[in-house]
């Protein structure tokens, strides 16, 4: 395995971390928006309690993926910044609004009134939709092979260069798929966060519904990929690893739903995270060795070897600090028997 491939794998691992952790925080926003029934305030409170201690750490996975991308694959980063300027700017606006609205929601009310707090809760919820949709759309644009060089001097118009690559049915369907996947993850995780049985049942039903919707969204993406991303589709069907990967993904999907059905929530959590991760890796494998199909390979986009080696060293060093810290964070907040008292004081 080449050095550049290894580093690309690590960048993708960071993206994977963002999807299964940060993605679920966006999914929480979806459920805050869809909170219904007599327990809607308790549902929202549970979501806020679950996200509060971890969302910033979860968010950093995206930053990590981004800085590794521009350090190690600057040509790919530059091209993404040019061609996907519009969707990525909207992703940013979503991130800014989501993050700040969540904090204002947590800290805006307190004992001094709940009107403003509710207001920020809805900004948080709506903003949580923007980022997954457009991040997924950007992924769809990459997978369909339309993030090409050019633009400057090619004579193409604004629409052709800056809109057409991502404003396609296929890319937008990937956006919808990402949103549903994040909502599914969030609902599955929330079954474990909930302390009261009725709240747990609420999210179990939501998780089952989202799981079914995810299946529908996957079918939609697959159908549209015929004309939208033929290369990726060919990779996903004919490559030697395709069948084992699909079987494994299918097995995790069934396990997640079965776990939910039989109220084996820990099992469901692991299976759901594995399912989403496997789908991501399927995408990555289908376009290997290209980082931006159809013409930019991982090796071509890579920084000089000295940079890659140094980054690997820094990653190893960073992992020594980060992994125990992350373990501690999740042990303190995600394995307790009682929910934190904050927000109820």
């Amino acid at each position: 395995m080449r050095l550049a491939d290894l580093v690309a794998g690590i960048v993708f691992l960071a993206l994977n971390g963002y999807a299964v952790l940060g993605g679920a925080d966006f999914g929480g926003g979806v459920w805050a928006l869809l909170a219904r029934g007599t327990r809607k305030d308790r549902q929202r409170e549970l979501i806020a309690d679950a996200i509060g201690p971890v969302w910033e750490a979860n968010h950093v996975w995206l930053i990590l993926a981004l800085v590794l991308l521009f350090t190690c694959f600057p040509a790919a980063f530059a091209r993404l910044g040019i061609v996907l300027h519009i969707p990525l700017s909207l992703v940013l606006i979503g991130i800014v609004l989501r993050g700040s609205a969540f904090t204002f929601w947590r800290y805006g009310g307190g004992a001094h009134g709940d009107e403003a707090q509710r207001h920020w809760g809805s900004v948080f919820a709506v903003a949580s939709l923007i980022t997954p949709l457009l991040l997924g759309t950007a992924v769809g644009a990459i997978a369909s092979g339309s993030v090409r060089a050019g633009g400057t001097g090619s004579g193409a118009g604004f629409y052709d260069v800056y809109v057409a690559p991502w404003w396609t049915a296929f890319a937008l369907s990937v956006g919808a798929f990402a949103l549903v996947a994040f909502a599914f993850l969030a609902a599955v995780y929330l079954t474990l966060e909930a302390q009261q049985p009725e709240l747990r049942e609420d999210f179990r039903r939501r998780a089952l519904g989202a799981g079914a919707a995810l299946f529908g969204a996957a079918l939609l993406v697959l159908t549209l990929s015929g004309s939208g991303a033929p290369r990726m589709r060919a990779g996903l069907i004919f490559a030697p690893w395709a069948v084992p990967l699909h079987l494994l993904t299918g097995a995790t999907a069934v396990t997640a739903l079965a776990g939910l059905w039989r109220r084996r929530y820990r099992l469901a959590r692991v299976a759901a995270a594995a399912q989403v991760s496997l789908i991501l890796w399927g995408w990555a494998l289908s376009q290997y060795p290209y980082i931006l199909p159809p013409d930019l390979t991982i090796t071509e986009a890579a920084a000089p070897a000295v940079t890659l080696r140094l980054v690997l060293g820094a990653l190893a060093l960073g992992a020594v600090v980060l992994l125990p810290s992350l373990y501690y964070l999740f042990r303190v907040f995600k394995s307790r028997s009682q929910p934190s008292a904050i927000g109820r004081q």
Binding site: L64, V67, T71, A303, L310, V311, L315, G318
Partner: peptide
């Protein structure tokens, strides 16, 4: 990119 990675 190195200091940016470390900053990360």
């Amino acid at each position: 990119g190195m200091p940016f990675s470390l900053e990360g």
